[in-house]
Simulated assay, not measured.
Amino acid sequence: MPLAHFDGALAVVTGAGAGIGRATALALAERGATVIAADVDLAAAERTVTLAKTLGTGGAAHRVDVSDAAAMEAFAAEVREAHRVPDIVVNNAGIAVTGSFLDTGTAEWDRILGVNLWGVVHGSRLFGKQMAERVNALPNKPEKPNYGGHIVNIASAAAYAPSRALPAYCTTKAAVLMLSECMRAELAGSRIGVTAVCPGFTSTGIARNATFAGLDSAGAGALRKRGEKALRMRGYPPEKVAERIVQAIIKNKPLVPVNFEGHVLRALSRVSPASLRLLARVPAPQG
């Protein structure tokens, strides 16, 4: 069954309760995939599965904290036992921490590294191992499938665009991008595709749920409102990111910048990194 058709595929999506995760889960379900929706908010994951079922596919919801290694191991084992080895894994769960490097404490670093980086490591390692074992167990015959699965890691345009206002976020997303490149090289031998997706500003709840280091509650509240308004005004829906993810799986693309700023920042990172370093110095607006 070619992954390009998705019909009958099993897809695991983390952070599937809202935003890019939900949009991706529904885009895959619309094409015939059964979706395992994982989120720290179980009710939100269940809502995603309910919406997926209206599209004619099955699915299941799981409450999972992707930063918890033991919880992720149990989750991966449960998916394999209750269903089978997934064909597609989308490591989407992510959070934002904003604030200068000197204002960002170890608690904020632990939290964002846990979700944005360790979450991707756990999901990729556990499910990637299952995929590789499935391929290696197949006999070397002409009818042997020419794929082992596909892993999508949601990075960000911040992966290649430094910012004095988002050092922790940029660091985790840059790590996700490099991890994806390393994984792609290793897993190609097992015919497992790996894609890093790097969206620019997208209308999700990431600003609403962000942590603002170095600000009191009033300042954080004002900056949160400003961030939410900016994302609404940008008006780039998560459904468009989901469509790019679907196409990336079909075409087995290594890196997918998304939307105008995603492409511009990627181009600048390659042809004029000095320009990005200058842009990184621009102070963030204060509430």
Rank of each mutant, 00 (worst) to 15 (best):
P2C: 06
P2H: 14
L3Q: 05
G8I: 10
A11L: 05
A11H: 06
A11N: 04
V12G: 06
G17W: 01
G17V: 00
G19I: 12
T24Y: 13
R31K: 15
A33W: 11
V35H: 01
V40E: 01
V40D: 00
A43Q: 14
A44H: 04
T48F: 09
T48K: 04
G56F: 06
T57S: 08
T57M: 06
D68T: 08
E78H: 13
A82N: 13
A82I: 03
P86T: 07
I88S: 02
N91T: 01
A93L: 04
A96K: 03
S100W: 04
L102Y: 02
G105E: 11
E108Y: 01
L113W: 10
V120Q: 05
V121H: 12
G123K: 06
S124R: 03
K129F: 06
E133S: 13
E133R: 15
R134Y: 02
R134M: 09
P139I: 05
P142V: 12
N146G: 04
Y147G: 09
Y147L: 04
I151D: 02
I154H: 00
A157F: 03
A159L: 02
A161V: 00
S163E: 03
S163R: 09
R164G: 10
L166C: 00
P167C: 03
T172A: 09
T172E: 10
K173H: 11
V176Q: 01
L179Y: 13
S180E: 01
E181F: 07
C182W: 09
R184P: 08
A185I: 12
A188W: 02
G189T: 11
G193M: 03
V194E: 05
T195M: 07
A196C: 09
V197Q: 08
G200R: 10
I206N: 05
A207K: 02
R208F: 02
A210Y: 10
T211L: 14
A218S: 14
A218L: 14
G221W: 10
L223T: 15
L223F: 01
E228I: 15
K229A: 15
L231P: 05
R234F: 08
P238R: 07
A242G: 07
A242C: 10
I245W: 09
I245Q: 06
I245G: 03
I249T: 08
N252W: 05
V256S: 09
P257R: 08
G262Y: 08
H263I: 09
A267M: 14
L268W: 00
R270C: 11
L278G: 00
L279N: 06
A280D: 07
P285Q: 00
Q286I: 13
G287R: 12
